[in-house]
Structure formats: C-alpha cells, structure tokens
Design a protein around this nucleic acid. Sequence first.
DNA 1: ACCAAATACTTGAGCTTGTCAAATACCTAT
DNA 2: ATAGGTATTTGACAAGCTCAAGTATTTGGT
Lengths: 147, 147
Amino acid sequence: MMDGMALSVETSVAHEAQKLFFEIGMAQRVKVGAALNELGLGFAQAHALRMLDPQEPRPMSALAERLFCDASNVTGIVDRLEKRGLVERRSAEGDRRVKALTLTPAGVELREEVMALMSEPPEAIASLSVSDQRALRDILARAVENL
Amino acid sequence: MMDGMALSVETSVAHEAQKLFFEIGMAQRVKVGAALNELGLGFAQAHALRMLDPQEPRPMSALAERLFCDASNVTGIVDRLEKRGLVERRSAEGDRRVKALTLTPAGVELREEVMALMSEPPEAIASLSVSDQRALRDILARAVENL
DNA sequence: ACCAAATACTTGAGCTTGTCAAATACCTAT
DNA sequence: ATAGGTATTTGACAAGCTCAAGTATTTGGT
C-alpha cells in the first residue's frame, strides 16, 4: 500500500514534467520547422546538416546511424543537399564503396544558421528568470548524463 | 561592454538549456515513434487522436488548428483513422458542411494507450532524483505559463 | 426570395520523408 | 579465385504535408 502510493507519487511527478516538456517541445518544433522551410530545408535535411562535421568527412552510414534511419533514406536526403551544393560525395580513399560526405563552404555557412536556429530557446524558456534557466540547465545536464 | 557580456551570459544559459532540452526531446521522439508504429499509428495520427475529445465531437477545422496544419492534410489523416474504425465523421446538426469527428469506443481505448505512451517520461527524466523531477516540473510549469 | 461571397471539406498534383527488398559495386578472407 | 560481407543505390510503396481548384452548403445584402 505505502509502496504503491510512493511509486505513484514519483511517477506522477515525472509524468507531469514530461507533459510540460512535450508541450514546449511540440510548439518549438512547429516554430523551428517554419524557419527551416524558409531556408528551403526540411527537418531531416537540417538535422543531417547538423550531424555533418565541417572538419571531418563522414560516410553515409555514419549519417544514417545519427539520424536513426535506414541507409536508403540517407541517399535521398543527401541527394537534395548535394543538388543544392551544400554537400559533396567523395569516394573515400582506401575503400571505394564508402562516400565521404563533405560540407561545401555554402554548406558550412548554412549549417551555422541551422545550428543557431535550432539552439534558439523557445519563448517559454527564454522568459524564465536567469536562476530558473540555470536550474533547468543543470537538471537537464544531470538527466542527459543518465543516458 | 558590461551589458553585452551580461546579455551573452544570459543567452548562453538559455541556449545550453535548449540544447539539452532538444537532445532529450529528440531521443524521446524516436522511442515514442517506434512504439506508435507498433500500434499501427503514425505520429500525426496519434497526435490527432490525442486532440480529439471523447466527450465532445469536433469539426475537422478544429483539428487542423490544433495540428497546425492545412485542412486538406486532416482529410487524409482522418481517412486513415476512420478506415481503422477509430473515428467517425458525422454531419453536424445545424450545418451540413461541418463533419463532427467522434471517437468510436475503439478510438477512445486506443487514445488512452497513446496518451499513456506519450506522457511516459524518457529514461533521462525518469532517472532523476525525485527532488530534481519536482524542480523540473515546477520550472517547466512556470515556462508554460509564460506562453 | 435571389444571388454573390464566404465557409467546410475534399480532391489532385507534387514534394519530402520513411520503410523494405533487391541490385550494384567493392572489399576480405579463405 | 571465389564466397560472403559491407556500403550505397534503386524502385515500389505509403504517410504526411502544401497549394490550388472543386463541391456543397450557409450567409448576407438587395
């Protein structure tokens, strides 16, 4: 009985937090999506851009892993990025099967914009007091560590 | 100079928080997406289900608003839900242009599952201490109020 | 009452994103 | 040499999304 109640209290706090978390995330997704569309990018393309390293070329397969999706999906996403001159497929030295994805200067530049856009805090967070923001950051940092 | 620095400190805290927020949200999206697929639902369908009221039928247009998408998109989403017998289109009394969306018993039931699934806190949040969870919930509640 | 304009929804074209299965090209180890 | 494994592409298909145009119905002005 006591255990049951204690547990239900705990889960209810986490659930309440999750509902709020989800609501803020959803709103932000809509806002960011609109901004990305104005840059002519879908969410997946933007995410792919973020996952590429301006310094170090990565194979398609590495991108698929980071995007948590099928390799054949990456083909299409990279096609569109390449058509816009943001990315280049270079055959990797040593293994001609792998395509080393390289950001072009235009790609690097747009990537910066995307990064800025996506790390822009939503209204909800920006309007918190600085001490709340700090507390939030610290709690989320602990949360991420526990992954 | 001082103002500039103070500002940059503030934005950097919010930005750091946002990056963590985004990372947790992204991971959760993937996990929830997989669970929804096992129920045979896409994210949009699930979200639509959530936005319908088991008590009070709503017109398509109301759903479009809540989904932040075009009305013509809702047609397709509701088509799929209706084909599975989760929702019914009834002509509204008083205005035959309007379709009143009504959840069937199966729809109500599946909606419950979806709600439970989507408010299930991610690993990252669940593994926080109870006091962190409480603090998180309270901060997010303040954040949502500021919308 | 009549007709033009507004409203609710559907349809169709076209795009991106996603999956799966099969093909291609290349590498590696026996 | 060759059998099997790996990286990427292709093709078929479906969801999700937008825009423009179409249909049905209501509303409002005259």
